[in-house]
Amino acid sequence: MSDPDPLSVPPVAGPGPRRSRRARIRAELKRAPLSAWFGGLVILAYVVLAVFAPLIAPWGEATVAGQPHQAWGGDFLLGTDQLGRDVLSRLIYGARNTLGIAVLTTCLAFLTGGLLGILAALYGGWFDQICSRIVDVFMSIPSLIFALLFLSVFGSSIPNLIITLAALDATRVFRLARAAAGTVVVLDYIQIARVRGESLLWLIRREILPNILSPMIVEFGLRFCFVFLSIAALSFLGVGIQPPTADWGSMVRENAALISYGNITALLPAAAIALLTVAVNFVIDWYVYRTSGMRDER
């Protein structure tokens, strides 16, 4: 708040010492609350599981290794499923499939939606109008319903799933990117860069993108959770990832009948989904608090 432009200190005076970026990040991490640490560690664990699934899993993804519905313990730490496949191994492979598809979908949605959103904010006019109206229509229907419609027409396959969800998600990303970029493009420094004669690439990459990065990162986390949950829901409904590919949503469906016998095997993949989304949300919560909460909300 205090203005270091006073009489006694002429503006020529050198600035004070400055902490390096790395030191600031380290200090930031040190102050992070337990929930954020927990979230970060969980995400890390999932990534490790997904990347090294074949090395970690005791059995193959679709190997029928034992009798159907074997109890916990022995060769099968978490028992076997209705076909006699190892539940633990399928859980580990499920991390790979479900996570991989969700990350891919989210990235695709951000590339298309984000770019179009920034362009719409920058150019305005008819380009913005057309994009926005199309997005309005797509957003006037819950995306799960639209996904169901498209999957019924084009059939359930992984590429179809990715393209459908990415397209539907891109509309949400478009909205956010357009709004975030919209508050930036009206600022004087964008005007200055434009009148200086800067190219479109420079405007997007150097002037706009760095300034909308933090809302976009938050949105990436939230959209990832949303996509992840949508894939799980679709697979659970039997129209998402198809067997024999291991996937948490369909694992819940396949083992759901066991719940009536007090068997919690079906709850494990559901818990795996829940744990990851909770972890991502914890990290986002902390990030939002760090980047905006302090200043905006007081």
């Binding site: 600022l187 004087d188 420094y189 200055i192 002037e207 760095p210 300034n211």
Partner: peptide, 15 residues
């Protein structure tokens, strides 16, 4: 060249 009223919005905060 032009100089603006509010130096807060005339400078890119990330540059």
């Amino acid at each position: 060249q032009m100089i603006y009223q509010s130096p807060d919005t005339a400078l890119n905060p990330r540059h």
